[in-house]
């Protein structure tokens, strides 16, 4: 029978869990910036009025 202490995460698990948040977050921020500066005006207007269902 395993004791609960054996289930405590090691440093590697914590480190990769942090990365699992950081990478998608950074990509999302970069993507948002790119859309902010790169989208044509009509797309921005549309996006403001009718936000997509899956966003």
């Amino acid at each position: 029978m395993n004791y609960w202490t054996e289930y405590l995460p090691n440093w590697r698990q914590i480190y990769y869990t942090a990365i699992a948040f950081v990478i998608p977050f950074l990509l999302y921020q970069i993507n948002k910036r790119l859309h902010h500066y790169g989208d044509p005006s009509w797309k921005k207007d549309n996006a403001d009025e009718t936000p997509r269902e899956d966003e």
Partner: peptide, 21 residues
């Protein structure tokens, strides 16, 4: 927003997946 769930759930999923020893 969907992206907020993804940002929250991705690390949690990883953490739960790594629990079994």
């Amino acid at each position: 927003k969907k992206i907020h769930y993804i940002l929250f759930l991705t690390p949690v999923l990883f953490f739960v997946a790594m629990i079994p020893k």
